[in-house]
């Protein structure tokens, strides 16, 4: 779990162009969207791609998926529970 959280932070920084941010700057339990990292709906689509590409986990962008997008930790939990 800790390892996936660390990996996810690195993927997010790389794929979402979060320049000048280090994995340590990201609080795994803090909300991803809204003020903190300034992520938006396009980033949500990119996160879906990150999950698919790196973990083979499919996720839709529907309202039901919203709790999964809450934080790095909720994403990591989803990966652990759904990866093949």
């Amino acid at each position: 779990m800790e390892q996936i959280i660390q990996e996810l932070k690195e993927h997010l920084i790389e794929e979402l162009n979060l320049e000048e941010i280090t994995p340590e700057d990201i609080d795994a339990e803090a909300p991803l969207f809204g003020d903190g990292l300034g992520l938006d709906s396009i980033d949500a689509l990119e996160i879906i791609l990150i999950l698919e590409k790196n973990y083979g986990v499919k996720l839709s962008n529907s309202a039901e998926a919203k709790p999964v997008f809450y934080s790095v930790k909720t994403l990591a939990e989803y990966i652990v529970n759904n990866r093949k």
């Binding site: 979402l16 162009n17 396009i42 980033d43 689509l45 990119e46 791609l49 698919e52 590409k53």
Partner: peptide, 9 residues
């Protein structure tokens, strides 16, 4: 031709 398609960003 990535299976996950192109990048929206």
């Amino acid at each position: 031709h990535l299976p996950e398609g192109t990048s929206p960003a």
